[in-house]
């Protein structure tokens, strides 16, 4: 589904990703782990199309299409959705507007008409209940004045409504207490599907107790230096990152 080949990315002149390769197939959950500054967030930002990241070489393809040639919204419409580590506050834009506009954009891309209002309302109410959120939040501005936990729930809520093919979740566990973590993890797990892939970017293994990945990759200094199954995450938890770094240097 997603194929990243030998990706080199520079930010403000310094190289952050130095030849990263990664393949994710439909139905898989991948976790990218690594020490701070390894380039974890850069990868998902580049896939989503954030400005300021210069791809100097390498390629990203999604279902055979060249992602780097696509506009930001085209990537989303193609089915790649990024859950932000720091969700942007957008004063004045109500959540309901965002959800409806985004859902209709997706439907339009699939040749469907706008969603009828009652159907939309029912959908939203179900998903809100699933994320244990209050319906009053629909009339509130996107992420404005939200607590860290509320923002992360909101990211997952958008995933549930927009049903991407590839959900990229950047540090979705940061700033969450244990209860919020469960709700978020349940939300993510409900997205698991044989047609859908999930890419988790995380610093801690804790999240992976709730969302068990198929593959775990260790990202160090802009490259994936080790890959394995869920067991690898547990090793990292007990032994830290240093041994991987040493092993890869050897």
């Amino acid at each position: 589904m997603l194929e990243v080949k030998d990706l080199h990315v520079t930010v403000e002149g310094s190289e952050i990703l130095k030849g990263l390769s990664l393949t994710i197939n439909a139905g898989e959950v991948h976790a990218i782990m690594g020490p701070n500054g390894a380039g974890k967030s850069t990868l998902s930002a580049v896939i989503a199309g954030k400005e300021g990241y210069e791809v100097t070489s390498g390629s990203i393809t999604f279902e055979g299409k060249d992602v780097l040639e696509m506009e930001v919204e085209e990537r989303a419409l193609a089915g790649m959705l990024l859950g932000f580590q720091y969700p942007v506050e957008i004063p004045g834009v109500k959540n309901i507007y965002l959800l409806k506009a985004a859902l209709n954009a997706k439907r339009a891309a699939n040749g469907q008409d706008d969603i009828p209002a009652p159907e939309f309302m029912k959908l939203i109410k179900d998903k809100i209940a699933q994320m244990k959120m209050d319906s009053s939040f629909l009339q509130r501005a996107v992420n404005e004045g939200f607590s860290g936990g509320e923002k992360k729930r909101n990211e997952i809520l958008q995933m549930l409504v927009l049903e991407p093919k590839l959900a990229m979740l950047d540090e979705i566990d940061s700033g969450l207490d244990i209860d919020a973590m469960r709700v978020v993890a349940d939300g993510v797990n409900s997205l698991r599907d044989q047609d859908r892939a999930i890419l988790l970017v995380t610093h801690y293994q804790r999240l992976l107790d709730y969302i068990v990945p198929d593959r775990v990759h260790v990202l160090v200094d802009g490259r994936i230096v080790k890959s394995g199954d869920a067991e690898l995450a547990k090793q990292l938890e007990s032994r830290g990152y240093d041994w991987v770094v040493e092993e890869s240097a050897a």
Binding site: K50, V72, E73, R75, A76, I90, L98, A101, K106
Partner: peptide
């Protein structure tokens, strides 16, 4: 610009 980007990552075109 950040808000425009955030909305576009949800599939909303730039003008909308």
């Amino acid at each position: 610009a950040d808000a425009v980007f955030a909305l576009r990552t949800r599939g909303i075109d730039e003008q909308t």
